[in-house]
């Protein structure tokens, strides 16, 4: 696979009147990644996404998509975008919409679109007007529209909006399928649980600056919490408390607070010494939500010190 960067953002600045939306922002996204933009409201995530599409103009810096500057329509040739708020005219049906998109893209995609609608369980809505659909149904249709074909880059702004749990699972599966077929996915979502399940890389943005970037596994730290999976939870709890550990019984095991992650080796020895049968012993890592909160807190603290 060609590993030339698909998205190249170099030192861009963007301000809306007095508000600095992006500051000295650089980012590289390689092909095949499922990349997530994370940050609080107003951090600059949607602005960045729109800059990548040429919808929002930036003040300085350079932005290239598939080696084309974003000012060129060629940069959007194999890019698909699902905005967070998109209201189609109430009369239009999915079939008419697809035909309209075919006219603009100069390509025939109806067959692919129908297949995608089958996948997202909205094929029965093909001839129904958008005005007669629920929010979730419209979102499924919109997702089918923007993921039709073999796009190189798919930008999804809050793709799970309005979807029920079944719909969210479908979206996750769709994203993984697109990535396995060679598409690069860039997701902007506040649903960290969803992001954690599907994304491999994340960029954390705060106040228009990139504050952390990398693989989700590498960003999450070990927490100092250990979990002993056992059926004999009461005996294990008692034995570990007697050994001086602070712990509590959880479903199918005992959660133990260690002094720090390095104490895990010693803890393993103590657990073995209890003689109680256990099926697994793991050192817990931070969830994406924990990572998010930690990184944002550090960033705000840093800003306070600087100011």
């Amino acid at each position: 696979m060609n590993k030339e960067p698909l998205v190249q953002v170099k030192k861009i600045f963007k301000s809306y009147q007095k508000v600095q939306a992006l500051r000295d922002f650089s980012l590289i996204v390689k092909p095949g990644m499922i990349f997530s933009l994370l940050g609080p409201n107003g951090a600059g995530k949607t602005t960045l996404m729109k800059i990548l599409l040429g919808i929002v103009k930036y003040d300085s810096g350079t932005v290239h998509i598939v080696n084309f500057p974003v000012s060129s329509p060629l940069s959007r040739k194999s890019v698909r975008y699902l905005p967070e708020y998109l209201t189609f005219p109430s009369w239009v049906t999915p079939k008419v919409l697809m035909r309209q998109l075919e006219r603009i893209r100069h390509e025939s995609s109806m067959h692919d679109f129908i297949q995608r609608c089958i996948e997202l369980e909205c094929v029965d809505l093909m001839n129904r007007s958008m005005g007669k659909m629920s929010r979730g149904q419209r979102q499924r249709v919109a997702l089918s529209l923007v993921t039709t074909g073999q796009p190189k880059l798919v930008l999804l702004d809050e793709p799970s909006t309005g979807l029920d749990p079944g719909g969210r699972i479908m979206v996750r599966n769709l994203i993984k399928k697109l990535a396995s077929n060679g598409s690069t996915i860039l997701i902007n979502s506040h649903l960290l649980g969803e992001v954690e399940l599907v994304c491999d890389t994340a960029a954390f943005i705060n106040k228009g600056r990139l504050i952390a970037e990398g693989g989700i596994d590498s960003l999450s730290r070990q927490t100092g919490l250990a979990f002993v999976e056992t059926e004999k939870t009461a005996e294990m709890h008692e034995a570990l408390e007697n050994a001086g550990y602070s712990c509590r019984i959880e479903d199918k095991g005992v959660l133990v607070q260690l002094t720090d992650p390095s104490a895990f080796r010693e803890f393993t020895r103590i657990v073995l010494k209890t003689g109680i049968i256990f099926s697994a012993l793991t050192l817990k890592r931070e969830s994406l939500e924990d990572v998010f909160l930690r990184i944002m807190e550090d960033s705000n603290l840093e800003d306070d010190i600087v100011s």
């Binding site: 919808i55 040739k77 890019v79 905005p83 189609f88 603009i104 893209r105």
Partner: peptide, 15 residues
Amino acid sequence: GQGRMSFWLSLPQSR
């Protein structure tokens, strides 16, 4: 206002 302009502009066509 309906958010369609950003969608149209995200397609491979000039402003």
